[in-house]
Amino acid sequence: MTSPPGVARPTIGLNADLGEGAGADERLLAVVTAASIACGGHAGDEHSMRVAVASAAARGVAVGAHPSYADRSGFGRTDLDVSVPVLRRQLLDQVRALGRVADDAGVTVSHLKAHGALYNAAMVRDDLAQLLTEIAATALTDPLPVLALPGSVLAEVASRSGIPVVREGFADRAMRPDGTLVPRGEPGAVLHDAREVRSRMADLAAVVDTICVHGDTPGALLLAQAARDGLREAGYLVGARPGGQPR
């Protein structure tokens, strides 16, 4: 698909969750336009954050914070019963740790994206949506846009609070009719067919601002390339953020 003469092509982001030890970060950074970097909750430490931030900056890739429940053994994909005050401190520590690394590298943190079970829970739970909105507003000097599923509780709470919302879709995940992600334990929850990913980009891009490929999904690089190809075929410029410069 091409835009009519004189009509600007829409811009969409392509992001990946990185710094998680999956081993494909450098290659993915050549394809994506934004990286959400693990900052110690489910994965990552100061060294991995420094490597990821430096690599992203060298590629012109936007850097975001990717905090989670403090759950390294479960990779942040287990629902945990954590009090809001404890979780607030954990998330602040994670986001601020990445903020310090970014400051040292001369990089601005561009967004906040929760990981795993926390991400999914914040899409439907008001208390966690309120908490993530608070973290986005206060963790660093400037408020951070939040990545959220379209129509989710988090998107609504953040928007009401004046926090910019970046609507996110997933190239490598199946969705339920209500717009939430199919749980990973269910058949077909994670997509592995690059042709399927490529073919679904036009429909997905019509309702989101950025599309994610998980860095730890097997074949992540191939899926990211397929997503990028599908977006371009659908008439989109792939940029760091809506209205950003294309890559």
Rank of each mutant, 00 (worst) to 15 (best):
T2R: 07
T2H: 02
S3G: 01
P5H: 01
A8C: 03
R9T: 06
R9Y: 00
T11S: 07
G13E: 01
D17Y: 08
G19V: 04
E20A: 08
G21N: 03
A22V: 09
A24H: 05
D25E: 05
L28I: 06
L28F: 02
L29V: 04
V31S: 00
V31K: 02
V31R: 01
V31Q: 01
V32R: 01
V32S: 02
I37M: 01
I37V: 05
C39K: 05
G40F: 01
H42I: 01
G44T: 10
A52K: 06
A52T: 06
A54K: 07
A57P: 05
A57I: 03
P67A: 02
S68Y: 07
Y69W: 13
G76S: 15
G76P: 15
T78F: 03
D81Q: 15
D81V: 14
V82K: 13
S83E: 14
V86R: 14
D93Q: 10
L98Y: 11
L98S: 05
G99F: 02
D104Y: 04
A105M: 04
S110G: 11
S110N: 06
H111M: 03
K113V: 02
H115P: 13
G116N: 08
Y119A: 14
V124Q: 13
D127S: 14
A129M: 09
Q130E: 10
L132H: 05
T133Y: 11
T133S: 06
I135E: 07
I135G: 02
A137R: 15
T138P: 05
T138Q: 05
L140P: 14
T141F: 03
T141R: 14
D142A: 13
P143K: 10
L144C: 13
P145Q: 08
P145G: 10
L147P: 14
A148T: 15
P150E: 12
G151R: 13
V153D: 06
V153N: 07
V153C: 08
L154K: 14
L154V: 14
L154C: 10
V157G: 04
A158P: 15
R160G: 15
G162D: 10
I163L: 07
I163N: 07
V166P: 07
G169H: 09
G169S: 11
G169K: 12
F170M: 09
A174W: 00
R176W: 03
P177Q: 11
L181R: 15
L181S: 09
V182C: 05
R184K: 13
G185L: 10
E186G: 02
P187N: 04
G188Y: 09
D193I: 15
R195N: 10
E196A: 15
E196F: 10
R198Y: 04
S199C: 08
M201K: 10
A202R: 14
A202L: 11
V208P: 12
V208S: 09
D209F: 06
I211F: 13
H214G: 12
G215W: 09
D216E: 15
P218Y: 06
P218V: 11
P218C: 10
A224D: 03
A226I: 05
R228Y: 00
R228L: 01
D229T: 13
D229Q: 12
G230E: 04
A234L: 00
G235H: 00
V238C: 00
G239K: 07
R241E: 02
P242Y: 00
P246M: 02
R247G: 08
R247V: 08
